[in-house]
Each structure stands twice: as C-alpha cells, then as structure tokens.
Design a protein around this nucleic acid. Structure first.
Length: 268
DNA sequence: ATGGTAGTTGCACTA
C-alpha cells in the first residue's frame, strides 16, 4: 500500500483553511502534520477537516503562538505531547498510525525560531533554540520488523550549504549558523534519523521550503531556506518512493511563508 | 546596515 505524509508550517490554521483544503483535495495525504496553528484547542476547525474525510485529529494548541496538529484519514493514537524546555509551549506531538503491515510513530515538531541575534549569551530565544535541539537528542528513530519512526516539522534550521540561497551570507544568520547546523546534524545522527528530503537529491542542488514574506517578489529573488524536514528510521528508506517540496503552494492565495513537504512510501 | 510582510493575545510581540 501507499502511505503519504505531509508536513506544513501553516502560520494560522484558521486563516489558512482554504489552502489546507486545497492541499488535502489535490494531494490527499494519509496524514498531515501542521505547525504554527496559532489556535487554542477549543477553537480548532475540526468540522472542516472531518468534511474532507480527515476524522482523526490530534492537536496541541495554545493562544496566539506555536501549536501543532496531526490530522489523518485513518485512526491515530496520541502518544505524547512533550513540553520541551518546560516552557509550556505547544511544539511537539507524537502519534501512532498503522501503515501497511507496520505501525509508525510520527513525531510532529515546531522548533523555536531563535530570534535575530545569534548569541545565546544576549539572546534568550537563541539559547532556548539550542537547548531545545539538545533535548531532541532523546528522540530516537525507534524501529523493529513491525514498526518504524518518522519525524517531521518546521525545525527552523537549514543544515547544509545548499539549504540556503547563500551559505556565505547566512553564516551569521539564525537558522544557518555553525552552532545550529552542527548541533542539528549531531542530534539527527544521534537519533539515527535519515534526512529523506536530501536522500535522493545531490548535495550541490538548492532546496528550499521557506521564502520570506518580506521579499518584494519571493519567486524572482528566490532567497529561500530549507527549514522544514522529513526524517525516518533507516528501515523505511527502502520503501520511500518520493519526496516532493510543493513550491507552487508559496504562490497560492494568502499563502503561508512555508510550503508543504510530502513523502510517499510503498509499504507492504 | 537596514527594512521589508504577516499573524495574533493587535497600539507589542513573534516570525
């Protein structure tokens, strides 16, 4: 069977319902992981999702900021809503879902952006981001013959040289500083995760999932960054059939500044 | 070096 997972920083789920519906109608992923829902749980637009056939919904939302939601066509079991750095932020949610003969643990993350100043001594937001990534070392890609793990989300770090429009110009810009990219890669490796988006793409090819709202013409200037990621345990890579970055969604009506990333697997 | 836009707890903060 085919299993499709999409991740998208939606920057307000209520405001973006028209384009969320468009994604679900056009792409029909089995499971959709949203970040920055900016929506308290009691105001979540459940009905709109159910109408589209997504009746299984797990959310961790708060007023105004952050917030993650995982939405599926088939039953999901909520496993954990972990409070990283004990700040009470809604930035993580894990669920379990059956896919083919396997049970998949799906982690949905919204890593702190980290503010503008890349110095943890004077910028507490950057300190928080580094601490958050360190704490993510505990999240491992668990698997056995009957199970696997997937980790997706807006991780707010572009780890590789060609994950940003200019490596040189962004070395001191939060999201691409060496302290971030090194701890990010160390964390990924410690957890035994595979970066699926880069798996079949040459390292010298540019890949972006985010384009700033502040550009006059995002498409023309094309100054993007790869902040959104899809990782899996090593036993799932042989089943991976494609990973697609839906660049066109940046040009949809009232867009998010992030676009969906969609991974497809052929599981037995 | 600066400022640009978008969202919400909107006249301040976050991204």
């Amino acid at each position: 069977m085919t299993f499709t997972i999409a991740t998208w920083n939606i920057n307000s789920v209520r405001l973006r319902m028209p384009i969320v519906e468009r994604l679900l109608l056009e792409r029909a992923p089995d499971i959709l992981c949203l970040q920055e829902t900016k929506c308290p749980d009691d105001l979540f637009p459940f009905a709109a999702f159910r109408k589209l056939g997504y009746e299984h919904i797990s959310i961790s939302g708060q007023k105004g900021y952050h917030g993650v939601a995982t939405i599926a066509r088939r039953p999901i079991e909520t496993i954990e809503k972990r409070d990283f750095c004990l700040k009470g932020d809604c930035r993580h949610l894990s669920v379990r879902i059956g896919a083919g003969g396997k049970s998949l643990l799906v982690h949905n993350f919204y890593v702190p952006a980290g503010g503008d100043e890349p110095d943890p001594e004077i910028n507490w937001k950057f300190r928080h981001k580094l601490d958050f990534v360190s704490e993510m070392n505990a999240i491992r890609a668990e698997y056995n013959e009957l199970s696997g793990s997937i980790l997706v989300g807006d991780l707010n770090i572009a780890p590789l040289e060609h994950d940003v429009w200019s490596h040189k110009q962004l070395l001191n810009v939060v999201s691409h500083t060496p302290v971030e990219t090194e701890s990010f890669e160390a964390m990924r490796k410690a957890g035994d995760w595979v970066d699926l988006t880069r798996l079949n793409v040459p390292l010298d090819q540019k890949l972006y999932t985010w384009w700033s709202y502040r550009a006059q013409d995002w498409e023309l200037s094309d100054r993007g960054r790869r902040l959104d990621h899809v990782w899996s345990s090593s036993n799932l890579t042989e089943s991976l059939s494609s990973v697609e970055i839906l660049r066109e969604a940046r040009g949809w009506d009232r867009p998010s500044d992030h676009v969906p990333v969609i991974a497809r697997f052929d599981l037995d």
